[in-house]
């Protein structure tokens, strides 16, 4: 029982991000509305970001800013005292890039709506199939 609890506590962060990722993936696969698909993509991106951030955590460590300022003397910096800065750097850029890609995705959705007057995937496909034989 104790071993199981230890296992759950030590892996809970991964499982939560996986649950979130599956929510996003389900929305991308099962939903027919393009905006809902985009929302699903964003949930998936958020899951990846949370996963990276949780990798950087260290027990009993603080944020990756070296203690400095008046009255604090230069002491040797121990890597164990600060959490891993690398995932934070990667995700910092990833968040802003995610917003930009969201903007491009929404722009594409607007163009699709202007062309087909709908954002439902099956209706767009039906319109495409109606058009295809007429042209040939």
């Amino acid at each position: 029982m104790n071993a199981l609890l230890t296992l759950i506590v030590s892996r809970a962060n991964y499982w939560m991000t996986i649950a979130l990722m599956m929510v996003g993936l389900y929305a991308m696969i099962a939903r027919k509305n393009l905006v809902k698909k985009i929302i699903g993509m964003n949930i998936l991106q958020t899951a990846v970001i949370l996963f990276f951030i949780s990798i950087g955590a260290k027990k009993d460590a603080t944020i990756p800013i070296v203690r400095h300022g008046a009255g604090i003397h230069n002491h040797a910096v121990q890597a164990a005292d600060y959490i891993n800065p690398l995932p934070h750097v990667l995700m910092l850029t990833a968040i802003v890039v995610a917003v930009s890609t969201l903007g491009v995705a929404l722009a594409l959705a607007i163009r699709i709506f202007q062309q087909y007057q709908t954002l439902e995937e099956d209706e767009i496909l039906a319109q495409l199939q109606d058009k295809a034989p007429g042209k040939e």
């Binding site: 506590v9 892996r11 991964y14 460590a61 910096v77 600060y82 800065p85």
Partner: peptide, 25 residues
């Protein structure tokens, strides 16, 4: 696959021992 991952908050996790100690120190 997470069963093979390092525990949450482990200071000796592979991600925390490669380049990040150099950055921090």
């Amino acid at each position: 696959s997470t069963l093979d991952f390092p525990p949450w908050g482990d200071p000796a996790a592979p991600a925390s021992v490669h380049v990040s100690p150099h950055y921090i120190e």
